[in-house]
Design a protein around this nucleic acid. Structure first.
Lengths: 233, 233
DNA sequence: ACCACAGTATGGTCAGACCATAGCGGACCA
DNA sequence: TGGTCCGCTATGGTCTGACCATACTGTGGT
């Protein structure tokens, strides 16, 4: 106890203050996607800080996928508010997988959960399945494991989007991005993709039929086929 | 067409290059949580860039919850590898909710999905429920809506952790952080918390009994009680 | 053995300069 | 009138070098 009643709880770095100011401004001025933030030099002057601090705050916002910086001049230049949570989530997953603070098993279980939910929800909502069918056609035409996985990813992301929940769709895209290499290896190990194709057809049919239970079951069986090593008991 | 076969696809900013180098280094040297990165000045010299660029890369890594910077001197000073995906996810959700590029409904649906899965998984695994019981006791002792929500949050996060999946637990914590204010209002609107308490007891009992189906059902009914406006048909 | 204090490595911040980019707008010419 | 060229300028991107605050390290004195 120092008797002053003070505790150096946490020092606030300048760029954190800048972040708070910008966030407040977004809320107060009702800024939304497409609007521009003031230029770095202006912002620095307005807030009474150096441009470096403003730039560090910009890096954070860019990392979180809420702004996008463009050089040059004109209406599209400068820091523009955007909404790209995908790359942020992807980077997050990739780095934490690299640090071994997450395991692939956890990622795949999460995907399993999301995909079952998305399939059931899309089926209940009788969502449009044109994108799903297109991705299925792409898989049939694929000539390599990489190409197959690409269209497979498109199929599953389209399924997540069909659920109508943008947060879940964003998480799904990031999960797939993080697993790409792993998925390619899984397909190569499997060799034959006809089983996977049949699974996809069943998922699509269940969604089209508006049968949530069947859709969820089809997804579950599909993942068991795709990653047999993770579903053994 | 410029005839050179080149297209300036995308310029790579210096700090992005620094990020890639650091990430490569983490992978190659097998760095893990607790290890230190070189000092900013060293890194700048090694990579042949300015300290500003290194610092911008650090801000990104810090935002993603992969490093934590400490000033001063000694073993704990400098940039240390950590694993804190929670705050990154929380910031991500908060900002995107603020930009209206996500709606509360989507967040709550996601929570519903996660929580059902977590409850069922925890029940199947016969997970330890001491933390759940402790949070339940905290709720009983709560004197205000804020306090109640705090222990309620602890209960649900403990449930996610009991599933054994750290990714899902991290997402759960972030979701709850983002919804805190909304949850407090929901509890105040509800007035009586006895229904919620009974729900929690049922969830806990189902997990203890190792009954995944009952656990999932209990969670679902609980959310319907807590957010009646979102589950009307 | 202990304590006080100078030394030093660390991140945090700032000021100012220069570069590359890309739209803007006027000058010039047909 | 119309179009084309070219300089202007606002923007982000980068670098340099300085200084501050912090917190450990080691040394020297007691």
């Amino acid at each position: 106890m120092d008797g002053t009643g003070w505790r150096p709880v946490k020092r606030t770095r300048t760029f954190e203050d800048v972040l708070a100011q910008i966030e407040r401004r977004i809320a107060e001025d009702g800024l939304t996607v497409g609007d521009r933030l003031p230029a770095e030099r202006q912002l620095a002057e307005q807030l009474g800080v150096s441009r470096s601090s403003v730039r560090e705050a910009m890096r954070v916002l860019e990392t979180l996928g809420v702004v996008s910086s463009q050089v040059g001049r004109g209406p599209d230049a400068g820091a523009v508010l955007t909404s790209r949570p995908d790359s942020a989530l992807t980077d997050l997953l990739r780095l934490h997988l690299g640090l071994a603070s997450l395991e692939m098993r956890e990622v795949i279980d999460t995907r399993h959960m999301i995909e079952q939910w998305a399939a059931a929800t899309a089926a209940s909502a009788r969502a449009d399945t044109a994108d799903l069918a297109a991705a299925l056609a792409g898989m049939d035409a694929a000539g390599s494991a990489e190409e197959f996985v690409e269209h497979d990813t498109a199929f599953h992301c389209a399924l997540a989007e069909a659920s109508g929940n943008r947060l879940i769709a964003a998480i799904m895209r990031s999960l797939r991005d993080s697993m790409r290499r792993y998925s390619v290896e899984a397909v190569q190990r499997l060799g034959d993709t006809s089983v996977l194709r049949a699974d996809h057809v069943r998922i699509l049919a269940a969604v089209d039929a508006g049968d949530p239970g069947a859709a969820a079951t089809a997804v579950s069986e599909h993942l068991a086929h795709a990653y047999p090593s993770l579903f053994g008991h």
